[in-house]
Design a protein around this nucleic acid. Structure first.
Lengths: 251, 251
DNA sequence: CGGCTTGTTGAAGAGTTTCAAGCTTAGTGG
DNA sequence: CCACTAAGCTTGAAACTCTTCAACAAGCCG
C-alpha cells in the first residue's frame, strides 16, 4: 500500500484530471473547464458494497465517477433485484433521478469508488451559463439510454448464453477504452451474482452458462480480470456489431 | 371519413396546439413558444404500420408525437424483436439516435400518426438560444430512461403475469393522462403481438396470461379499448406504486 | 366468397429456476 | 498456526415457467 501507487487522492483541479487525458473523452475548452471546476463541490468516497444513492430517497448531489466501478439498480418489494447498468469512470450519476417523479433507482459501489460531486441545484445554471455543457449532459443521458436499450434487447430476446456473451464484450470494450487493461485482460470486479442480476438470470444458470462458454475457449475470468480469447466467436454469438465510437463528453 | 371528424390537419401555430391545453404538459413562456414554432419544420404523417425511423439509418429529423401511437424497437439479425417503449402524444423521437454511435433503434407507427418535425441541425441552437428548452430536452430524455428502467426491471425480474399487469397499468395511466379515454376505457391500439414483443414473451404465452387476468376480472380489452376493472389488484400483482406526476415539458 | 390479420387453445418440449449440497479462498480470532 | 466463518463459485437433480408447434375461430376487406 505505498501511497505513490494510488492515483492522486483527490484531483485538485479539473485541469489536471487524468481522465481527460484519455482519448475516450472529448476535449473541452478553457472556459468550460473552469466552470466545471467551480461547479464541482468536492469528492465522494465509497467502499465496495456501499450505497451511493439509496433506492428510495432523493439526494442533493449529482456525481461523475472518477475512479472505480458502480451499478444502478431497481428492485421489487420482495427483494428481486435488477441491475440496470454498470457505471465506470466518466459516467454521470443522478440525472434520471433529477427529473424523475419521486425516487427511481439505487446506485451501489462495486469496488472502492471516488466521485466528483456536483450540487443538483447548480444544474440549471450550467444550462444557462454554458449551453454547450447542457448539450453534453443530454448527450450523456442519451448515451446511457442507448446502453439500456441494448440491455433490454438482451434480457427480452437473447438466450442466456447470448446475453452473457453480450455483457462480456460490452464491459470489456468499455473498460479497455478507459485504459483499464494489461496483458492479463481488463479489470473485472463483477461477481456472477452481479451478472445474473444484470441479465435477468438465476445465479445457478449464470454459473453454468459462464462455465460452458469458458470451456469452449471463448473467455476467461480469473483474479478480477476478464480476458476474451475469441472475441469474434463472442460477437457472433451475441449478434454484436462493433461500431466506431465517438468521444464522450466528460462533466 | 368526414374531414371534420379529424383533429385539425396541421396545427398552424404552436400557440394553438391542443396538446398544450392538457394539464399533463408544463406551460412555456411566450418567447420559448415562438422559438419552438420557428424551429418546427412542418409535420410528418404516417399510416399504421409504417416505419417512422428505420432501424439502421440515421435521419435528419427529430419529432414530437402530435397524434397517434408509435413504438421504438430494436431487433437481432435473425428477426427477434424487442419493443423498447411506446410513444404517445408529447413524446420526443430521435434523441438517442442523435447522440448514438451509429444507428440505434427503429420507430414504427402503431396507429395513424402525425408528428411535429424539427431539423436535427437546429438542436444545438436550441440549447444556445434557449437553455431552458435544452433543459427540457434533457428532462424528456431522463423521463424516457426512467420508463425503460422500469421495463427492464419487468422483463428481467417479473413473471409473465406481473409484466402484463405492469404494462396495462402503465399504458392506461399514460393514455388516461392525455385524455384518451371515455366510459369505455382508454384507447388501446396495442395487439397481443406488440405486448409480447414489449415484454420479452412469446405470443402464445402472452395470450394465455392476458386471458387468465381477464377471466380473473382484472381487466378487459375490447374494440381497441382497455378497461381496468380492478386496478388495485393489478397494482398489487405488478408491485406498482402510483406516484404523483410532474407536468411534462412539451417541445 | 377467399385471403389476411388477430386472437384462441391444447399438447409437447426446451430453457431456466429452484433446491440442495459441497468446494475453494480469504479473512479472523483463539 | 489452525479452526472457524463468510463469500463466491460449482455441480446434480427435480420442478416449473415459458416456448414452440399445430390447428382453428373470428373479424375485416377487397
Amino acid at each position: 500500500m505505498e501511497p505513490t501507487a494510488l492515483p492522486p487522492p483527490s484531483p485538485p483541479e479539473c485541469q489536471n484530471c487524468p481522465l481527460r487525458e484519455l482519448h475516450a473523452f472529448a476535449p473541452v475548452d478553457e472556459a468550460e473547464l473552469r466552470f466545471i471546476e467551480a461547479y464541482r463541490s468536492g469528492m465522494g468516497v465509497f467502499e465496495a458494497g456501499q450505497t451511493i444513492l439509496p433506492e428510495h430517497a432523493t439526494g442533493e448531489w449529482l456525481y461523475t465517477v472518477y475512479e472505480g466501478w458502480a451499478f444502478r439498480f431497481k428492485s421489487l418489494s420482495d427483494g428481486r433485484r435488477q441491475i440496470l447498468n454498470f457505471l465506470l469512470p466518466g459516467d454521470f450519476i443522478g440525472l434520471q433521478e433529477q427529473f424523475a417523479d419521486g425516487a427511481s433507482h439505487g446506485v451501489e459501489a462495486l469496488t472502492p469508488v471516488r466521485l466528483c460531486r456536483f450540487p443538483k441545484m447548480g444544474l440549471w445554471s450550467l444550462y444557462r451559463e454554458f449551453p454547450s455543457l447542457g448539450y453534453d449532459v443530454t448527450w450523456l443521458a442519451a448515451r446511457e439510454e442507448n446502453i439500456i436499450d441494448e440491455t433490454l434487447l438482451s434480457v427480452g430476446r437473447r438466450s442466456a448464453a447470448e446475453r452473457i456473451a453480450m455483457l462480456l464484450i460490452h464491459l470489456y470494450r468499455r473498460a479497455e477504452r478507459l485504459g483499464m487493461h494489461d496483458e492479463a485482460g481488463v479489470v473485472f470486479p463483477v461477481s456472477q451474482q452481479h451478472i445474473a442480476d444484470a441479465l435477468g438470470l438465476s445465479l445457478v444458470h449464470t454459473n453454468k452458462t459462464l462455465r460452458r462458454l469458458q470451456k469452449l475457449g471463448l473467455h476467461d475470468v480469473a483474479d478480477g480480470r476478464l480476458r476474451l480469447h475469441n472475441p469474434r466467436a463472442l460477437e457472433r454469438l451475441a449478434d454484436y456489431a462493433d461500431r466506431p465510437l465517438r468521444r464522450i463528453p466528460l462533466i
